[in-house]
């Protein structure tokens, strides 16, 4: 999976590691399907995070060893997982009470587009022949306290994913707090996209050029500039 846009900036693993640094100890976290799943591998030493999977498990552990899995112990991506000590199972209505009721601290999701006011599009391209499928994404963005998006900065065709307003069908309005891309960490603020951190070797102009909306510079000067 070599993409031209990946010749600079963070790899997928480095992006996931960067997200993990920002998750406080003791958080209850839901990880979406795809790159978000990688975040679980990079929890900094000394922190305990509890993972929730919306199909009905709190205290999700990593994939099972070959031959030790149970087809009825899976995550939201329908892949086999394990449980950690202290785990619990529950039915769908309880699982979404955790989500919608504001009991989860953080959700990390993928994106098709994020707008400068925090709107998220991540469930449908909206084409007439597409089979629409939403799963739990709209519930997660409606109810979880913080929403982090992890995504490549641009599409495979080079189109910006951070835009003034989304053109794809929305998942939720004004829901995204932060975006972690291969090029930068960007906060969604009342003033719009604000740069938090640049990936090594990436400058502001490069990120601005590949962003479909105005990017505000880092709020405070960093010590090494």
């Amino acid at each position: 999976m070599t993409e031209t846009q990946n010749s600079i900036g963070w790899s997928r693993e480095e992006m996931a590691g960067r997200v993990a640094q920002d998750i406080p100890d003791g958080s209850y976290v839901n990880l979406g399907i795809g790159i978000p799943e990688l975040v679980a591998r990079f929890v900094p030493e000394g922190r305990e995070l509890i993972y929730h999977t919306e199909n009905g498990l709190l205290g999700m552990g990593p994939s099972p060893k070959p031959g030790e899995g149970d087809p009825e112990l899976i995550n939201a991506g329908k892949r086999q997982v394990t449980t950690k000590p202290g785990a619990s199972y529950f039915h769908q209505s309880d699982s979404f009470a955790m989500i919608r009721g504001g009991h989860l601290d953080l959700c990390v999701l993928g994106a098709l587009q994020v707008s400068q006011n925090g709107d998220l599009a991540n469930w449908s391209l909206g084409g007439p022949d597409d089979i629409p499928a939403v799963g739990g994404a709209m519930d997660l963005v409606a109810g979880v306290k913080s929403i982090f998006v992890i995504t490549q900065h641009c599409t495979k065709d080079g189109a910006p994913k951070l835009v003034e307003s989304c053109t794809y069908p929305l998942t939720g309005l004004r829901v995204v707090n932060r975006v972690y891309t291969d090029l930068a960490v960007i906060a969604v603020t009342p003033e719009g996209f604000q740069l938090v951190e640049l990936a090594p070797g990436v400058d502001f102009d490069t990120v601005q050029e590949r962003t479909g909306a105005q990017l505000l510079p880092i709020a405070e000067p960093t010590s090494n500039v």
Binding site: S95, I99, G135, M138, D139
Partner: peptide, 10 residues
């Protein structure tokens, strides 16, 4: 009829 998963559950 497409329904968000949590809405379907509720």
């Amino acid at each position: 009829e497409l329904v968000p998963q949590g809405t379907l559950a509720e």
